[in-house]
Structures are given as structure tokens and as C-alpha cells.
Amino acid sequence: MQLTADLTGRHVLVAGAHDEARRAVRRFAGAGAIVRPVSSPEHFTPELLDGAVLAAVVSADDGGWPALAHACGERGVLLVREVPALPGGCVTLVGGGPGTEDLLTVGALHALREADVVFFDRLAPHADLPRLAPGAELVDVGKQPGHHKVTQRDIERLMIESAKAGNNVVRLKGGDPYVFGRGGEEAAACADAGVPVSVISGVTSAISVPAAAGIPVTHRGISHMFTVVSGHQPLTDAEHEHLAGLGGTVVVLMGVGTLPQLTAGLRRAGMRPDMPVAVVERGFSDSQRTTVSTLTGIVTAAGAARVKSPAILVIGEVVRLADGNEAGQLAGLAESVGA
């Protein structure tokens, strides 16, 4: 049940086994209620409803707790039924997509609803987590360029400790956990610690953010392949040569800081100096912006536009198709344009 009522100071009775009712207890308490938990029908007495405005039965049996249902009817107390929380002691790595709640998958939403604890990144859709993960403890472990308030090893340790304490842990990450998200490391750490771990894929920003700017990463007759590259560290000469010779579209994540090295390396490797390049900042936000230029001009254009992370780089002829421009006209390449 999604709870939006303000229950500050109101008494709520929650009936159900401790483990099964744990999410409901936390959620009602988070809404300000004074919660009275009752773990079994044998422990229930009608007097426990004194002053209560609501009773919640957490049970897989719709006919369970008949005495409580009868007493609620007699006293005019609203009775709701909820399904039990899933067993804890596990970790789910959830891809949150490019940052907009609209692109969360059904699986991601279900995992968040079942979560006891959520460890979330700054690029994951976290603004409305209290509603998406009602009653869960929310822990910000987001990293920023040059500043990691919680190290990767500490994140893994916190997840494992929480799961071993019996919690249903969700690790909410931007994009997809297995696309430069260090999800493989976190899954391996959980497995090594004997903690069950599962993965829910997310919509990667490598595809979705260019699309938000009107740029398809593939297009018939123009590009039949795309390569996703991390720009976190400068590439080697051999990697520049490989990218320049591969053709198609190159999508670079986390590449603002290494943009000068990347473009210089691709030029040395033989990529055309007039190859179209786009930098899409803050994809799917109200301040999304696209800066378009060529391989030789993008560093200057990005500097003039004061481009900052988070941003996606797109290199290739598909940039000419931005906003549906299939005629191939790349007017104003050195200008910063709104997307």
C-alpha cells in the first residue's frame, strides 16, 4: 500500500509476524504514527484498538486475524490488508536509468517497494525515494568527480552488513549497473560474502541521453554500430586508433574532463577533423543542454558554453540527425543549442 496520509500522533495497529510486518511498521512510523505492533492473533485484544484510527493486517491469508476484523467493524476502525514483506538478507542491484523516474523499470519499482534499506547514487532518480521506497532507510552514497564521500569498498561493506542483519537491500545506481556502474564488483563482493544478490537492468544513459537530444546512436545508411567508452581516464594511442578505425558512433560516458585528450587522440589516429560531435549535459533534467561542433572545434565550443558533468559525448555522423534533421545539414556547429 502506498501511504500518503499524515498520521502524526495518530495510533495505528499493525498485525503480523515481525519479519513480515517490518516494512509496514517502518512506513507508518515514518508517516508520524504511534505504531502498536501485534505479532500473532493470540496476542490481540480489542482494547489494543483504543484510540486507533487505522489497523493494518500483514498476512498472506485474506481471512486471517478474524477477531481483529470483527473488532474493527464494531469500533469503526479502518482496516487494511497488506502482503508480507519479502524475506531479507539479500541485495538487489537496481539500474535507475538516466535519472528520470519515468524510465525506471517495473522491476526497479517493485524492488524499491520491497526494500528495507536503499543505498543510492547521485545520478539515480532519488528525489522521490520516500514515496518509491516507503518506510525504507535511505542512504546517500553518491560520488562526485574528485570527491567520494563513501568509498566503493565501504559501499560494498555497508550493503553486506545490512543484508546480513536481515534487511532487503537495494543498491540504486544511475543507468545500468553493468555499464560502467561497478555493479560487477558489488555482485562479486556479495557472492564472496555469501549474500544472495540479483540484478535488475536499467536504461543506460549511453542510449537514452543521446535520444533525449534527438540523436539516434544507429541509423540506417549512416551508422550500423555504436561503441560505448568510459572517458573517466585518458585512452591510450592504441585505443584511439581502434575507435577511429571502427567507424559507426562513439558514445563517451564521463568524458568532459578528458575531452581535449580524446579529440586530439582521435585526430592523430586519423578521424576526420569535421566529424560531428555533440555534448549532451544533464540529460532528462529541466536544464538539459546540447553543445554541437566538430572534432576540431568541440573543445573550444564546450569551453565557451562552460560545459560541465554529468554529460554524454556523441561522436559520429548521427549527430547530424539531431532534432530529426535527416537532410544532413549541420548548421551552426560551433554554437551551443538547447535540447
Rank of each mutant, 00 (worst) to 15 (best):
A311R: 12
V250W: 02
P37D: 13
V25Q: 08
R81S: 13
D61C: 05
E156C: 10
I315G: 00
A24Y: 02
A115D: 13
V141M: 13
A31Q: 13
S208N: 03
A212I: 04
G257E: 14
A302N: 07
P66G: 06
A111Q: 12
V179P: 02
I200R: 05
T258E: 00
A136K: 03
L243N: 05
D102C: 00
D102A: 15
S230L: 06
A311I: 08
N167A: 15
G297A: 04
L138G: 02
G297W: 04
D6A: 14
E101F: 02
M1Y: 05
Q233I: 12
M159Q: 15
E335R: 14
L330P: 02
L93C: 09
M275G: 00
V53H: 07
T291S: 10
A189K: 08
L54F: 03
R289M: 08
C90I: 05
G175C: 02
L93A: 08
Y178H: 12
D116E: 00
V57K: 11
L13F: 04
G265S: 02
A211C: 06
D116M: 03
A31P: 10
L104W: 02
S162T: 06
G99M: 10
G245N: 09
A127N: 08
V256M: 12
A17V: 13
F226R: 03
